[in-house]
Simulated scan of single mutants.
Amino acid sequence: MIKNLTRGLAALALALTPLTAAGPAQAAPAVEPMLLADAVAALPVAEESRAGYTRTSFKHWNAGLDPADGCNTRAEVLLAEADVAPDVAPGCRLSGGAWSSYYDDQEVTDPARLDIDHMVPLAESWDSGAAAWTAARREAYANDQGAEPSLVAVTARSNRAKADRDPTQWMPPAPGAHCRYLTEWVATKLRWGLTVDPAERDALVGRAENCPAALVHFTPSP
């Protein structure tokens, strides 16, 4: 199943007024949708380096879009992506609800069994350009609710199987998810101006051949 359509509407609204860690930022114009093959060709190619990376370089699961509601970014993504809304207790404790994990085509009714995956993992983003960013920009990246593909609720098992791998090394176990996953991976890299290494570029080019009509939609990050 696809994600709840309300997530798409929420992401569209957020894209019009994107946020940084410091608050509202000037919206960038959306880029015309591109065929996946053309979007892959638009990605800059560079060698990767993980030198100096630590996960703590990316402050994540911050106070979210409305600090007053007690929900951090993780909880807000769960609320936005729910097919059936969970109960919300004081302190934004979630229980019940239902979600579709598109990586492995699983239905989940316990929010504790879900992870919020960074479409392009934090370590991969570091390798691909985020090492040169400010701490504020890395925080904005790690909590990006301004674009639907950036953060996705999936089963903990699939997220941990993916870890920090790129599409050279890992693809969702559900075959029907592959084209969507590729468009969202490429959209996230283009949104944030991240590079691909030669092996990753070659893998994306090859996999894109199986998705000839797939379109990539993205808005450049603030």
Rank of each mutant, 00 (worst) to 15 (best):
P24G: 05
T54I: 01
A75H: 10
E124R: 12
D164C: 00
W192R: 00
V108Q: 06
D87K: 08
S57N: 08
A98D: 07
E209G: 15
L43Q: 09
A37Y: 03
A28P: 02
V40A: 12
A39E: 06
R165F: 05
L14A: 15
L16Q: 14
C211D: 10
P198M: 13
Y53G: 04
A13H: 07
T20N: 02
A142N: 10
A214R: 03
A177H: 01
L122K: 05
D83I: 08
L122Y: 07
W170R: 03
V77K: 06
W192F: 14
P173S: 15
Q26M: 07
A37Q: 15
H60E: 08
A132F: 06
A142K: 01
A11I: 09
A130C: 12
D144K: 02
K59G: 15
T56C: 00
P67I: 04
D166W: 00
I116L: 07
V152S: 06
D38C: 02
G129A: 12
M1K: 04
A153P: 00
R165M: 01
V40R: 10
L94S: 04
A123P: 02
R50C: 04
S158V: 07
V77W: 12
A140K: 00
C179H: 05
K162Y: 04
P24Y: 06
N62H: 12
G96R: 03
L78M: 13
P198Q: 13
E48D: 11
E139V: 08
R180A: 11
D105W: 02
A22P: 04
P173A: 14
A132P: 01
L114Q: 05
L35E: 10
W61K: 08
S150Y: 02
E139A: 15
R191S: 06
V108G: 02
G91A: 10
K189I: 06
R160Y: 00
A46Y: 04
K162I: 03
A46K: 05
D115Q: 02
L94E: 05
A63D: 14
T56S: 15
L204E: 12
C71L: 05
V108R: 00
G176D: 15
A156N: 06
D66L: 10
L190M: 08
K59Q: 14
E148K: 01
A41F: 08
S57L: 15
A208P: 04
A39H: 02
A131Q: 12
T195Q: 05
C179I: 01
T17K: 10
T54G: 07
D104I: 00
E32K: 07
P24D: 05
A21D: 12
I116Q: 07
V154S: 03
K3T: 12
L151V: 11
G129K: 03
T134H: 03
I2M: 09
R74N: 13
S101D: 05
G64K: 01
T195E: 09
